[in-house]
Design a protein around this nucleic acid. Structure first.
Lengths: 207, 207
DNA sequence: CGCGTAATTGACTGTCCCGTCCAAAACGCT
DNA sequence: AGCGTTTTGGACGGGACAGTCAATTACGCG
């Protein structure tokens, strides 16, 4: 049998993620990752292959994680669907607003930096957003069934719009827009969702 | 008198912009800019000071240019205000959709890469988006005066939401979302704008 | 025509970069 | 205990990196 690994792969990936997240792909040197993880260079290359493969691995896990989290948050019985949607939109705004360091989202940052030249990155971003859009659409359909959202609206198109608003808030946050304003964007978006006639007077409040 | 410059500063800035745009800040070497512009290293440093200052210069011009363009496109008489808004939203979607190379917007890319660590970049991004938001709000107020948009809506909040949708479409485009879907996002957003009672049946068509 | 001024050119410095390589070490199995 | 196998740690190579510098060149004014 061979010599066993001395490091925890998950922990190393987490450190590497932090590094890529804060300094970007091109801005991160393998030496920086070596320093951050404590691994020797041979171990790092032996275990992960190289800078690009390491990034892809980190990016993959990140994408999967947030897509799972969103799908989780939006899944449930029909009678809570609309509230879940509102909560999610508000939480996204609050998350961006709370991000004092303006680190933003690794998905957005990685996509912005690399999607132009790396189809593998693009594919991962697209899939993640696709999964989020699907989760939104499913929740919207549930809200329609329950009578909170206008059943005449196209759930797929509405979900893509909501996704655009979510990603837009992230972009505005990175550009330094203040938190209050971001949260008002969320409220405005929620207020414009097509409600059914009887529901349109009662918008679930956040505070 | 001194020896005159042999290069056109604007042309050099344009080449430098292309370089930063396609390979990002950290991913662009000064040697690459030297190669792209044809200048010698001494000239480049003498004229612009260094990598960071050169980028800031390029970024500044880019931000000013797009903010101007948006303000231009949204300015005019009240009776065309709503159409101008729709045209702008559709054009933004079409622009992203037509961007086969997925280069995206330098404002978005630069902000994503640098705003976290460079307050000067953040300030420039914020000001540019602020100007765009103001142009949108002015146009929305004009559309309200003319009776196309519900005068009860808060123009500032609505304009920030529209801005979020615009930046969101850009983000989705970079993640590889197909053009049709982006254009449907634009239509959905337009369709949800709060119309006045008598206007709400007549949405200006795009095709 | 020479002189001061400023632009040009590209060689150069010292640092950082990615990835490779190898000797030493840590295991389980026999 | 000896073996094969894998990990470890760090030195190393070749190249790229940002920025400097000195010698040269081009201009207009006196």
């Amino acid at each position: 049998m061979a010599r066993p690994r001395e490091f925890d792969e998950e922990a190393v990936l987490e450190r590497a993620r932090e590094q890529f997240w804060t300094t970007g792909y091109a801005g991160t040197s393998m030496d920086a990752i070596v320093a951050a993880t404590g691994l020797g260079k041979g171990s790092l290359y032996g275990a992960f292959g190289g800078k690009r493969q390491l990034f892809l691995r980190v990016f993959d896990a990140y994408c999967a994680r947030i897509a799972d989290a969103v799908a989780d948050g939006l899944t449930g019985p029909d009678d809570g669907a609309f509230v879940r949607l509102c909560v999610h939109i508000r939480a996204a705004a609050a998350g961006v607003a709370a991000d004092e360091l303006r680190r933003g989202c690794l998905l957005a940052k990685g996509t912005a930096e690399l999607s132009e030249h790396d189809p593998d990155v693009t594919a991962r971003s697209r899939r993640a957003l696709e999964r989020i859009a699907t989760a939104l659409a499913d929740d919207i359909r549930a809200a329609q069934r329950h009578g909170d959202l206008d059943p005449a609206a196209d759930a797929d198109e509405l979900s893509t719009l909501v996704l655009a608003v979510l990603r837009g808030m992230e972009a505005l946050g990175k550009a330094g827009m203040d938190g209050d304003r971001l949260e008002r964007v969320a409220e405005t978006a929620i207020g414009l969702l097509p409600r059914t006639g009887q529901a349109s007077r009662a918008v679930p409040a956040s505070r």
